[in-house]
Structures are given as structure tokens and as C-alpha cells.
Design a protein around this nucleic acid. Structure first.
Lengths: 155, 155
DNA sequence: ATAACTTGGTCTCAATCGCAACCAATTGCG
DNA sequence: CGCAATTGGTTGCGATTGAGACCAAGTTAT
């Protein structure tokens, strides 16, 4: 019985690795530049982005579900944002356990300033792809997200 | 002078976010299942994978460059792997600063066991894509990696 | 040759993170 | 009703991490 040849794995071709590496690059490209300026980090930004999408109060739990971020992380991020005066906490009328979150005017201002910068940065990163390729990327991400049972983009 | 409408950003459509979320899912899917069994974590796995690709001693620095992992993290991962008996450290002949790393027989055995499991897992994850779509994904990842100046897969 | 600089690697430190325990409010069930 | 189970959120704790100080070895310039 001869020894079977070892199966090799090229890390650089291994999708989980490639995704992690690329995701880290995306984060660096964004966080480094703009977020430090407003005293916020990625978890804070996720809360901000979730609250900024609609002008309605949202519960912390909603943010958790939306962003797949651990609730302790969300809780702490909300704490920072409240301290910074970007977010206001309020009790929910119907369920007094829930903490309803809303952007303050100051928070909305930061959001309004941050969004164009981040979108521009995203644009710069994706500019290496043709329009067709971008559509492909969207489609592939959709399928992968669906297969992981991640919350999809509604509209 | 009228107030301009706030530009909105849908987090779920924002590529940096999507990449990060998906990357986390990939990691969970792999790490949870197999790696705990061998007492190794993601940084350790990266070292193992780098050393396993060719049967030649490599320096820690090589692993750093290859995986874009911080050198302190690599250093610690190597420490664990040595403790576990999966990796052997040796001085380089020509440059006595370098630490040459090599898989031990035990390390090669673990590698040989782990690789098929991980590849099977990757396969399961990507099975939601058609062959065409997989080719597209490869191509898109290539382009993005190139634009980030990441080390590419040679062959 | 020696001083200044660079490079490979380890280690200390502060910050971050996720888990899980915890509290409070709500819901469900006997 | 009243007690268990569940849910929303906070917090303490241990583990992990990256930045950067540090040491040792090698390189370069004069």
C-alpha cells in the first residue's frame, strides 16, 4: 500500500482567505482616512449607517440583525455615539426593554458629511472593474449572501 | 439657499461592508468545524498553509509577505505551532537573523488531514455558483487584489 | 573598520472583541 | 393570577490583536 500524495492547498487561491484579505483591505482603505476624523470606528459607523438610512427611531436589536454585529459590540458603539452626541437613546413606548435609537442633528450632519466621502472611496476602489464586471460582482455577492442566509438588501 | 437633500447609503449595498460580512461568514464556516480539533486558529492555519505548499524551509518573513499578516501575529502563531510540534524552527545558514520554518512530520500529517476538509468546505460554500460564475468570481477577485497591490497567485 | 541604517523576529502594552453572566421587561403556560 | 421561559440590552472578564519598542544581525557609506 503506497503512500498517497499529499493534497496541496494554495492559500492565494483559497476563497475564504481571499475574502478575508480583501475585506481587510477595504476596511483599511475606508477607516483609516475618514472615520478617525469623526472619532468613530467601524462598529460606530455601522450603527450610524443603519440609523441614517431612514429618519425613524430604530431599536438596538434592529441594528444587530441588520449588520450581523454582536449585540455587545453594538451596545458599546451606541454608548460612544451617545457620548459624542451623534445618537440619542429613548425608551420605546410599547416595550420598555427596548432602547430606541435616533440620530441627533449633529449625528445627521456627520452622516451627511461621511456618506459622500465613503461612496467616493468605494467608487475609487471599484473603478478597476468595468460596469459589466460590477454587475457580476453584485450578482455573485447576492448569491453568496443568500446561501449564508444573510439579510439581503430589500429594494 | 435651499438645504440639499441628504445623500443616503445603504449598508447592505455597500461593498466594503458586504465583503467584511461575507469574509466573517467564510471564517466561521471553516474555523468552527475543523480547526479547533487540531488546536489551531486562523493565524496558525495560515502559517501551516504557507509552509505546506512546498517542502522547503521558509522564513517567518516570507509568511508575513505571503499572507499579509502582522509579524507579531505570525510570530505568535509560529510559537503555538512549535509547542504543538507541528513546526520546527531553525537558524538560517546565511543570515542568522532569520528563523527558518518547516513542517515536522506531525505537522505534515495535520496538513494532509486538514486540506481535504477545508477544500470540501470551500466547495460546499461555492456550490451555490455555476461554473461560469465561479470563473467570474476568480476573475473579479484577481482584479481587486491587483488594484490593492496584494500578492497574487503565481501559477 | 566603525558608525549609521536596515531588516528579521520577539515581546510588552493598551485597545478591542466575543462570550456569557446578568438585570429588567414581556410573554406563555398551568 | 403567578412562575418559568424568552427577549432586549448592559457589563465584566478573558483572550486576541496590532502598534511599536526593543534586540540581534547584517548592510552601507565614509
Amino acid at each position: 500500500m503506497s503512500k498517497r500524495k499529499v493534497e496541496r492547498l494554495n492559500l492565494l487561491k483559497f476563497m475564504p482567505f481571499r475574502f478575508n484579505r480583501l475585506a481587510a483591505e477595504f476596511s483599511n482603505a475606508l477607516a483609516a482616512e475618514y472615520m478617525a476624523r469623526f472619532g468613530i470606528d467601524i462598529p460606530e459607523w455601522r450603527v450610524l449607517a443603519t440609523l441614517g438610512l431612514r429618519d425613524e427611531p430604530r431599536s438596538a436589536q434592529y441594528v444587530v440583525r441588520c449588520t450581523r454585529t454582536h449585540k455587545s459590540r453594538v451596545s458599546r458603539a451606541v454608548g460612544s455615539l451617545v457620548t459624542l452626541g451623534y445618537v440619542a437613546r429613548a425608551e420605546a413606548a410599547d416595550d420598555r426593554r427596548e432602547v430606541m435609537l435616533e440620530l441627533t442633528p449633529k449625528g445627521r450632519a456627520v452622516y451627511g458629511e461621511l456618506v459622500p466621502l465613503l461612496l467616493k472611496r468605494e467608487e475609487a476602489i471599484l473603478s478597476c472593474l468595468t460596469p459589466d464586471e460590477r454587475a457580476q460582482l453584485n450578482h455573485l455577492m447576492d448569491k453568496l449572501e443568500r446561501s449564508f442566509d444573510l439579510v439581503q438588501c430589500g429594494e
